[in-house]
């Protein structure tokens, strides 16, 4: 498999970050960074990571099943994650998630037909004091109201997301 030069550089660094004969340590970071680039953990990626980390594909497979951020099917270009854990729940996150689900017409871990947006109800993401919070890919958005949520979704659709302060 070929990856972007930046990712290859990251991989190269990873493979020297761990003690000798501990290449296996690089599995999780490699999978996550590669997933960010290619969209999901594909069977080829499993083989590739297994080869580079000198483990069996099964050993990579076991890891993938364990971590909730690794997924075998592509999610949306923008993966919208709504935390509904207790701190966010206290400030209406469950209602926010329902709102999201209803307006986006998406169930948990579903992707819009155009592949633009996917939705996920997630566990605490470390934004409790600024709840309710969501993450779009890796960007945090704090104090999200349904109205702000709609504006954010609009910006994903019209391409303005990330270009102006949200």
């Amino acid at each position: 498999m070929t990856f972007s030069p930046a990712l290859e550089e990251r991989f190269a660094k990873l493979l020297t970050s761990y003690p000798p004969r501990r290449l296996r340590s690089a599995i999780v970071p490699m999978l996550l960074y590669a997933q960010d680039e290619i969209g999901c953990v594909s069977p080829e990626l499993i083989e590739e990571v297994a080869r580079r980390c000198e483990v069996t594909p099964l050993q990579v497979d076991e890891v993938i099943g364990y971590y909730s951020m690794l997924h075998r099917k592509p999610l949306g270009k923008y993966h919208v994650q709504v935390c509904t854990n207790i701190a966010c729940q206290a400030l209406g996150a469950e209602e926010l998630y329902d709102h999201a689900s209803r307006t986006l017409r998406l169930g948990n871990r579903e992707v819009t037909e155009d592949g633009l947006i996917s939705l996920e109800e997630v566990e605490c993401m470390g934004a409790c004091s600024w709840a309710p919070a969501i993450q779009i890919n890796y960007d945090f958005h704090h104090f999200v109201t349904p109205e702000r949520f709609d504006r954010l979704m609009e910006s994903l659709r019209d391409g303005s997301y990330g270009k102006k302060a949200s």
């Binding site: 501990r22 290449l23 296996r24 340590s25 690089a26 599995i27 999780v28 999978l31 996550l32 980390c53 483990v55 050993q59 076991e62 890891v63 364990y66 971590y67 909730s68 951020m69 690794l70 566990e123």
Partner: peptide, 19 residues
């Protein structure tokens, strides 16, 4: 990569070892 249990110290070490 998304696992609360990896905060538990020994599970963290397993995770660090690629498991």
């Amino acid at each position: 990569a998304g696992a609360y249990e990896c905060g538990e110290e020994s599970a963290l070490l397993e995770s660090l070892e690629g498991k």
